[in-house]
Design a protein around this nucleic acid. Structure first.
Lengths: 254, 254
DNA sequence: TACAGTTGGTCCGGTACCGCACACAGGCCC
DNA sequence: GGGCCTGTGTGCGGTACCGGACCAACTGTA
């Protein structure tokens, strides 16, 4: 779980919970890259919580009450068509926060945000988040830059959905997941992947077999393990890398 | 062209060009929806210019010198893969400005921005833009909200690229184009459309024939005319409408 | 140990779209 | 007029992926 030191007594007041958090122990990249002062501004508002699988961070077209910083696990951002078909337009984990739209002047998002892979994180109320970001321009800039990176990721999804075969898109997804989880192995079913990629479940099975055939990954029931990261990147081809490079350029190492 | 009154002499100084512009005559929706004061802040920095077809507003991964507000015509935002394949991730016209990334703390964008259909607009230097948006929170909010809408559009592109047939996607594109041009007829070739949609040129021809067969559009050499807007929306199905609704909710009527 | 629920492997016919190629038509310049 | 470029119509074989179904294998609970 998360490092968490109480300063005095952790009583919520009208504005923030006075919980003292040690910046050197957080694994969220945005929080870690904040200046000491900016972190001190934000930390008292953060409430650590367990983000179990399927935990809902945001419901489409519904006021966003809380903003989340992820420490571990992974969030899927999913767009849904009126006819019921849906597809993942982006993911974030310890590299970011969400839903970012609150910083763009929209108290709603048209997308689902939910934990695809369980983990932990912090939450703070939208109100507190806007108040704190309103106080510090550098802090706001870090958050904005993440939004830019996330937008790039969404654009990349649009690109590969329209121009890459499933095998490549799967390789991309696995790599993106790895980047955010720090592990080579994570729980995921073919069924979920089929929703993420917007394809048929058995097409995912086929694509997994292709990657397994090249000894890039090893799939077991409800689980995928990466065997050869470098060659997996090669398999993803031009699908993978653009938003990741933007992250490093603007924020820092993943 | 664009209504343009000079106040005194239009000499550039170190900060802004002092050109007086009448808010009631601009057709850009963002500029039109600004408060009188915010408009007065921005207007002196705006230089009107002709945005001819293929005019480049932004080159990928290159510092953005100028920001543009579109008065007429249409911009394509295109993502390109390392293997050369590219696809449109969004469009904007008199509904917006670009490249929005400068407001998100990135002086670059990974995407191409260029005039797909020629028109007119205003430009101002990135420096001026940031200075002005730094002065007024309400003005910044309007710009941010447009970025949110554009992000929604990109996400919608990801969704339909992965889950809709070409005919539907073409119908969506034509409708989006119409929304931004105020005309039912506009110049576009099958070849360009094939790049936008990320499909084969002859697949576009086929899709056009399908829509023509239902008397929804009429295509002539290098030109498309909308015959029945309502039924065209029906043909686009669930592909069309989400970002448009966000625009109306957050900014105002198109 | 039996059962139920979940997950994965596989097979079917069907089709949307691909890559490529070639012919033809509209509009322009000499 | 003749030549030329750009844009459009069309055809052919190939394939990636679809929708749907069924069964086998694994896993948790009784």
């Amino acid at each position: 779980m998360v490092a968490f030191r109480q300063g005095g007594n952790a009583v919520p007041n009208s504005f923030c919970v006075h919980a003292m958090l040690d910046q050197s122990t957080v694994s969220n990249r945005l929080l870690a890259h904040l200046s000491r002062d900016d972190f001190a501004l934000l930390a008292p508002c953060l409430t650590p919580l367990d983000l179990y699988r399927d935990y809902v961070l945001a419901i489409p077209n519904t006021p966003i009450g809380d903003v989340y910083f992820i420490e571990s696990g992974m969030v899927s951002v999913v767009a849904e068509k009126a006819d019921g078909r849906s597809i993942e337009v982006g993911i974030y984990g310890r590299d970011g926060f969400g839903p970012g739209t609150v910083l763009l002047g929209s108290e709603q998002t048209p997308h689902h945000h939910y934990m695809q892979i369980g983990g932990t994180g912090f939450k703070l109320s939208t109100k507190d988040f806007l108040q704190v970001t309103g106080k510090s321009a550098p802090l706001r800039t870090v958050m904005m830059r993440f939004i830019h990176v996330f937008m790039t990721q969404t654009a990349q999804s649009a690109l590969v959905n329209g121009s890459s075969v499933i095998e490549e898109r799967l390789a991309r997804w696995v790599l993106m997941c790895r980047d955010r989880l720090e592990t080579d192995e994570f729980p995921i079913t073919h069924d979920f992947l089929s929703m993420m990629l917007g394809v048929r479940r058995s097409s995912v099975t086929d694509a997994i077999h292709l990657l397994e055939g090249d000894a890039l990954i090893k799939a077991t029931r409800g689980n995928i393990r990466i065997l050869d990261r470098v060659r997996l990147e090669r398999a993803a081809g031009a699908s993978y890398g653009v938003p990741e490079a933007e992250f490093r350029r603007l924020i820092g190492p993943l």
